[in-house]
Write a protein that binds this DNA or RNA. Structure first.
Lengths: 334, 334
DNA sequence: GCGTGACGTCGAAGCGCTTCGACGGGGGAA
DNA sequence: TTCCCCCGTCGAAGCGCTTCGACGTCACGC
């Protein structure tokens, strides 16, 4: 493996000049720079990452903590991960993957050993135990998702509250007066995952504001649970005509269940989902998309800004947009 | 951040003694070692990863190249990734995540910069363009999946050929004489993904051997495609009584489609799947499980062995086991 | 009593890079 | 013509760790 002194020798300059020529941190004459670049190319020179990290106090690696627990939709996580990795590469950074289970020790480890320059956390809880650590850590971080209090942190996510609102408003505008939310599995609410709760808040607030009757039903991520919820919905709210679903796993079985129960979508029942756009598109559902890729990218951008010493907002909420598809229609005044 | 000299001073020894005491690479008296350990603990000492990599020529980081393309089941990928990360941590290694798109350049980059000590590749093609590179690279690697020729490499995977065979043999034993395979999306075969082809080979070979009539149908990963395939199956092979499915995404819609077409499972039609066990369990399907977690772990173990200078087999094929569930039954001699 | 290992520890030399201060030379201003 | 400054380059120091060779000490054997 060629090292910087090899490149220097071949270009007929000193090692420091090579460094400056390649990093651009000091002006180097065009002629010299070109000679250096040529030498580096010819030798296939690649700076040693460890040496660079040691001398330069930057590893050019980000840590990404990805969740792998029940109740979160795996493809969404994977999308995040993929977009973070891709975005990081655009900024010449690599991504070290940590699992949620590593916990605070893992974060401290990769930060203290200077393995990573900065951290991205997914699946943040309302009272996440990692928050105090993050606030004291000397390395910048970005949270995907919102804890109760994000003072001193940097958080980004889709505005789930307004996603809930948009769905209800859409149904209200179509004349629906009785609506229900089919939500995430109960454990997701129990452990205090903010985004799930925010959807509920938005849903309820918008329904109240619009004078709609509303109900909320958590739902396990199984077809059987979907069927049960469908039945219960019709029993509890016979006048129900609009349903908002925030649970990728039961989307399809839920719609099937409704149809098996004799309800046509959207003829008798309008359904709006909060889910990845690709899924909604496949099922022809009106939906608010989860912009995973965009969130991941923006998270990396925020992190880079912080690494560069810039100031970034504590909270970044991406505004949802509702895509109308075939599953919602004006209420038929039967 | 405390450094090794701080620990040395506090323990009243030299830096090299600290290094040896903590690494165990030379004998150190118990008394000294304990003083060093105490000092390190009290100072919260963490060796700088870059310095360590530079001096020790080991970064303790593995690269994992994960696919993110069409036709592969995302949860399976995620399982692999998770198990690799977890297993790596057990060996005191971290995992750098690369995307397939980074391609050969990405591999060369992380290897040449000494960012990683070793590599794990998923989603290997029969004639994978990365193979020549891997063979010449100075760093060990393990492939999850098999290329056409794995000489000089280390490959591991479930024995998909025998998975196909096991399914057919199971159906044959139950008296079925006409069987079909519903496979992966066509593009998966086109681009030469070995495991998909191996299933087909095993399926066909076992059917021929047992004198069963057989047919193979690739199938897009959509419910609509599943329905079409179901219909075509019944049209093409009216005597069909056994189906093997190797396509996670269409498992559920396919079974539904059969039932909607008036066929009871397993009464009229036996169905065996090759899919993650969790999915098969949820759908009550007889299946050969995809042991993603085990494959990931074993891959890491192999890599560690190679890093330690050991010799490992070029090919490791995990033997499949068939779990009998409610979707297969003896053929009713109607 | 002295030689001989073995054991435990130390000092110094790097690992390959970045960065700081310094320096030489050429051009512009006086 | 002289002085000054700036541009482009160099040398050296150091980032924090591992590792090699060496050295002192103690216990043992003769």
């Amino acid at each position: 493996m060629a090292k910087i002194t090899d490149v220097a020798r071949r270009a007929g300059v000193s090692a420091s000049t090579v460094s400056y020529a390649l990093s651009g941190k000091r002006p180097i004459s065009t002629a010299t720079r070109q000679r250096v670049e040529a030498a580096a190319r010819e030798l296939g020179y690649r700076p040693h990452a460890g040496a660079r990290a040691l001398a330069g106090r930057r590893s050019n690696v980000l840590a990404l903590v990805a969740p792998l627990r029940a109740g979160i939709h795996v493809p969404v996580v994977m999308q995040f991960v993929a977009s973070v990795v891709t975005a990081a590469r655009r900024h010449d950074h690599d991504v070290l993957l940590l699992t949620q289970e590593e916990g605070e020790d893992g974060l401290r480890r990769v930060a203290d050993t200077a393995l990573v320059d900065a951290l991205i956390l997914m699946d943040v809880q309302l009272h996440d135990p990692r928050l105090p650590l993050l606030r004291t850590l000397d390395r910048p971080s970005v949270l995907i998702g919102f804890p109760r209090d994000c003072a001193g942190l940097t958080c980004i996510d889709l505005d789930f509250r307004s996603a809930g609102e948009r769905c209800v408003e859409h149904l209200a505008r179509l004349g629906h007066r009785v609506v229900a939310l089919v939500g995430s599995p109960p454990e997701v609410y129990v452990r205090g995952t903010a985004f799930a709760q925010r959807v509920v808040q938005g849903f309820t607030a918008a329904a109240d504001r619009g004078g709609l009757a509303s109900a909320v039903h958590p739902c396990e991520a199984t077809p059987a649970a979907a069927r049960q919820v469908a039945e219960r919905l019709l029993r509890d709210q016979p006048a129900l005509t609009g349903v908002v679903v925030h649970n990728e796993a039961v989307l399809e079985p839920l719609v099937s269940a409704f149809e098996q129960l004799g309800l046509r979508v959207p003829g008798d029942l309008s359904v709006a989902a909060i889910c990845p756009d690709e899924l909604a598109d496949r099922l022809h559902l009106t939906s608010v998309a989860l912009p995973s890729a965009e969130v991941g990218e923006r998270a990396v951008d925020l992190l880079m800004e912080k690494l560069a010493g810039g100031l970034v907002p504590e909270a970044t909420l991406l505004q949802p947009t509702l895509n109308r598809r075939a599953s919602t229609a004006a209420r038929t005044t039967a």
